[in-house]
Design a protein around this nucleic acid. Structure first.
Lengths: 136, 136
DNA sequence: GCAGTAATGCAACACTATTGCATTTGACTT
DNA sequence: AAGTCAAATGCAATAGTGTTGCATTACTGC
């Protein structure tokens, strides 16, 4: 099952309508090589002769983020598909400053340790996002 | 020695001129309760009757970032003073989703472990940024 | 196919960020 | 204390990011 197909199922399960714009945004993100900004998606659609309003794109992306179907990559100013839905609360990106390659992964131990250190500082952590840059 | 005073010394040491705009941006960030965006800084200055061009603010902030004097907080869209210059390559923020309180800290062990996990994935990490949300 | 609501499109607006070029000014010399 | 000059700023222009309110459209369930 493709990323988009899976996401469509999640939308349905949660009671959200499966609309043309939502499918288009999902497909754009699925096919993209790297993070896509809302603007990128709009331009891509325009290029294909299918106009999508930017406001709609923002709203769709917000929804997809809240459903953990896509993740924002801060350091790249865009969004990527998320294929690691099992766990929540923690995700990490490796971003290569050479080729731009991006890899997402999770690590339970790291996540636990992070929360522990936060706790020692009097903080109840719920969610961690780590972005590492370097060379792949 | 205040944050601004220290930063001014660093600028001088590194051969950068100590200008009125640079001091103003430093003071704005020093006094701020939370992260300041370039726009915030511009408005703050305007409020005090001291105009500062936005382009200048962006350029000053870029310089301060490159000198590790301020850090960007992605999840808040702003910049905070950095008082932990000793180590480089790794920094972490705890952001309280209740009161908005922000705390920066470092943890060598966590940083090492992160790099190790990255290495196992074939990635030579140079820099990590983690932002954790939760409750303080 | 129809009804009703959720979602979209549009208009408008505010903030983020960058480039090129003319002008100014801080640091250094004398 | 005044002069030099490269570095830094200000301005104009431009493009991308992100949000709100409201009228219209189109999915979903019947």
């Amino acid at each position: 099952m493709s990323f988009t197909e899976h996401a469509v199922e999640v939308l349905r399960e949660r009671g959200y309508k499966v609309t043309r714009p939502r499918k288009q945004v999902l497909e754009a993100i699925e096919k993209a090589a790297g993070p896509m900004s809302p603007y990128d998606i709009g331009k891509m659609m325009e290029g294909k002769g299918k106009h999508l309003d930017q406001v709609t794109i923002y709203r769709v992306i917000n929804l997809l983020c809240s459903l953990n179907l896509v993740h924002r990559v801060f350091s790249r100013g865009g969004f990527v598909r998320c294929d690691l839905q099992e766990e929540e609360g923690c995700h990490r990106f490796l971003v290569c400053r050479g080729c731009g390659h991006l890899q997402e992964f999770r690590d339970e131990a790291l996540c636990r340790q992070e929360s522990q250190v936060a706790q020692k500082l009097g903080f109840q952590a719920e969610h961690h996002v780590t972005e590492s840059s370097g060379l792949c």
